[in-house]
Design a protein around this nucleic acid. Structure first.
Lengths: 255, 255
DNA sequence: ACAATAGTGTCTGTTAGACAATATCAT
DNA sequence: ATGATATTGTCTAACAGACACTATTGT
């Protein structure tokens, strides 16, 4: 009809142990393409938009189908529609970005339950290594793998990373990486991993407390060989993120 | 093919004299629909995406064709794809927002030159009056007209307004409303009109000067019955707006 | 006691905002 | 001189960042 195919893709972020240092690092799951164009290369999870589905629902569905993860946050990123982004056909991609907690990553689920995704063709990569096209001979040391990506997905990952890092500094988006309760140390480590720099514990505490987004539960975490930290939870009456008049944008999987 | 039609629409902002007070106010041109759905209602300028055109080019083209204005700035806003936004068919709209200077508004051009748009069916409205669905009997005073809009265009205008107001506070986006040179008073009046509140001239000056986005030309404006103000221009070496890795997004009409 | 992390206090430099004071034009 | 706007100066409160200090646990 229109000569244009409409697709959705999602940049999924999780904090996972770095393959070398072991410290938490922003990571992205990619899917290996099993057909042309770009057969064999790694690409963002996605698929075609079902005419009977909203864009957000399409993103949430394709994301689960291909990678098995259940996001705790899903937001539209940008729509890419350059003429030459897919060889031979005109594809416009509405791209989303998502956050997942470690417990929402379906690690090779039992074949019996859940949607069967091809675990062989899904792999996690260090986000910062994907930001620019793979130039294996540029002399710079590569931590983690930095494959060449299909389509314009390098640029998309770079933009999603920028958006996440910008947003973590002025919103409570970090809770997309955390469970229902957490210590300030855990919250700070999330920020440190996202921003890739260390933060002063004292100043971080004051900032977060002044923001009013968290509430002390009154409980403490015992067992550490140090003073027991307080437990906090996010203030559910405050909005997670200020997306303006669009409000919260959840795939129905928020928890 | 896909069962989905892909459209572009644009929220165009200009500063025009308020119909009552005469002071500059954020205004938006709308186009009266000449066919169903929503025949007779006012709607954002737009059209179908040409498979041979990029999204930005489609937005720029349809915008000129329907309203006759030439934007000085054009940026993607959001993509709207709810199932029920167009009765009877599935339409996904990639929405842009644009800024135009007064001299870029083609006021009923001579029939001989320029693309012939239907001037009878284009009208300018006060932006803030369009933000919420028209409720003519809610008792609140309405300045300017506040028509009921087609589709979900009320929500789109509200979101575009939020984006513009957010962005004017941390970027040099205001130059989209100004010519190549300007006084600090003119620049401040642009900010005041966009934000709809008065700003302290002294503090405004310091903020703008500290931002490094403007440069004094060395010239002054004579003729006023007061101290002659300096002329400034924007520093073209500095980026207009920080759109992250996406960079500048111009329709080719920037000047 | 000691190591380790949690949490508090204090200082400094920067910035936003209110507002006073001075400068320079046209009339 | 007067009115009008431009431009500079000053003061205060709020805030971010650096860093010293105290608190509380397990060993």
């Amino acid at each position: 009809m229109s000569g244009i195919r409409l697709a959705v893709s999602t940049v999924i972020f999780a904090l996972r142990p770095h393959p070398e240092s072991g410290r938490p690092v922003l990571s992205i799951p990619l899917v290996r393409r099993t057909r042309d164009p770009f057969q064999g290369l790694w690409a963002l999870p996605g698929g075609w938009v079902d005419p009977a589905e909203s864009l957000t629902a399409s993103a949430g569905r394709t994301l689960v189908e291909t990678t098995g993860v259940r996001p705790s946050y899903l937001e539209q990123l940008y729509t890419f529609g350059a003429l030459d982004r897919s060889p031979g056909e005109r594809v416009v991609s509405v791209v989303y970005w998502a956050l997942v907690r470690p417990d929402q990553i379906g690690e090779r689920p039992a074949p019996s339950k859940g949607p069967a995704f091809d675990a062989e063709n899904v792999a996690w990569f260090v986000a910062d290594a994907l930001g620019s096209p793979g130039t294996p001979d540029d002399g710079a040391p590569r931590t983690g793998d930095a494959p060449r990506l299909a389509f314009d997905h390098h640029a998309i990952v770079t933009y999603a990373l920028w958006r996440l890092r910008t947003k973590v500094e002025y919103s409570a988006i970090a809770q997309g990486f955390l469970g229902s309760t957490f210590t300030l140390s855990e919250l700070r480590q999330v920020h440190e991993a996202v921003l890739d720099r260390e933060l002063d514990p004292a100043n971080f505490r004051r900032q977060v407390e002044a923001s009013g987004t968290i509430v002390a539960t009154g409980e403490h975490v015992l067992g550490g060989r140090h003073r027991p930290p307080r437990l906090y939870r996010f203030d559910t009456s405050a909005p997670l993120v200020d997306n303006g008049p669009l409000g919260e944008l959840t795939p129905g999987e928020m928890s």
